[in-house]
């Protein structure tokens, strides 16, 4: 049985996030496929959860009391794989096989192949119902684990999310925490130009959720929000983020949803990430 992982400070998380962003670039460079914009927007949330909040044992992935993590926006698998490798679920060198023929690292995560993945996501609107089931099960069993689920903002246009949000609110599942990666861009355009989500916080509140809006790149704020005392309601963090965060020519540009940088752009991106000033 491996011991629980060490918790990082906000400053430590910021440096880890830089390393994860560099890992994402390397991961998508080989197949020249991936979803770089969302990978970079969700990085700080994933890093905070895996290295500052959640309890799990990479050497004992089926540990019954592990905190559950579900990446509903499964297309951001390069970010998830980079974090899982960093956490010790598999060797970092395996990232080089991302999307290669017969690789365990499919374009969307597959729990049959990769430990640490709880649910095979990809079709949008699936993660929250699944996470509600994990949390309801924990409640019925009297287990102490928590369930975390990360949602894209665009995927909130899927109705299944609201079925699940309604039920989690109804049951008062305060062992459940959702994070909305609010980068305001979906594949084809801005969310507000496509099918507007605002007033997003009001919507979650109306469904019975403890709703927190914060900077989704601020590790200290994320830590505080994740660890704030429970109040009998499920919690949602609306994490305001920048799609493509950390690389100037990718940030907040719709065309970088799943574009892959050229070799020259990769060099520039790496330089920018290496120079990135860390807030904490």
């Amino acid at each position: 049985m491996s011991p629980p992982q060490e918790r990082s400070s906000a400053a430590g998380l910021a440096e880890t996030a830089r390393q994860i962003r560099l890992s994402i670039l390397d991961t998508i460079a080989a197949p020249r496929m991936g979803h770089i914009g969302g990978d970079l927007s969700v990085t700080d949330v994933l890093v905070t959860l895996f290295f500052g909040v959640m309890r799990y044992r990479p050497g004992e992935p089926d540990w019954a009391d592990r905190d559950r993590f579900v990446l509903s926006k499964g297309h951001c698998s390069a970010a998830l794989y980079s974090v899982l490798a960093q956490a010790g679920y598999f060797e970092r060198s395996q990232l080089q096989s991302f999307m290669a023929p017969l690789s365990a690292l499919n374009g969307h995560p597959n729990r049959r192949k990769i430990k640490g993945v709880e649910a095979n996501t990809g079709p949008l609107g699936h993660g929250l119902p699944f996470a509600v089931g994990c949390a309801a099960g924990g409640r019925i069993a009297g287990a102490g684990y928590r369930t975390f689920v990360v949602l894209g903002d665009g995927e909130l246009q899927e109705g299944s999310n609201w079925e699940a949000a309604m039920y989690a609110g109804h049951r008062g599942l305060d062992n459940l925490c959702a994070v909305v990666d609010r980068n305001r861009l979906q594949q084809g355009a801005r969310t507000e130009d496509t099918n507007s989500l605002e007033p997003l916080a009001d919507k979650w509140r109306a469904f019975g959720w403890d709703t927190v809006e914060l900077d989704g790149h601020d590790h200290a704020a994320l830590l505080r929000a994740f660890e704030a005392p429970r109040d009998g309601r499920p919690r949602v963090l609306i994490a305001n983020t920048i799609k493509g965060k950390g690389v100037s020519f990718i940030e907040d540009r719709v065309e970088w949803h799943h574009k892959v940088p050229s070799p020259e752009q990769m060099l520039r991106a790496r330089e920018e990430l290496n120079r990135m000033e860390l807030a904490q």
Binding site: V132, T147, E163
Partner: peptide
């Protein structure tokens, strides 16, 4: 849709 997703999550939780 939620019903089936919740059921899968319950299976994950050991039920």
């Amino acid at each position: 849709q939620n019903m089936v997703g919740v059921a899968a999550g319950l299976a994950n939780a050991g039920f």
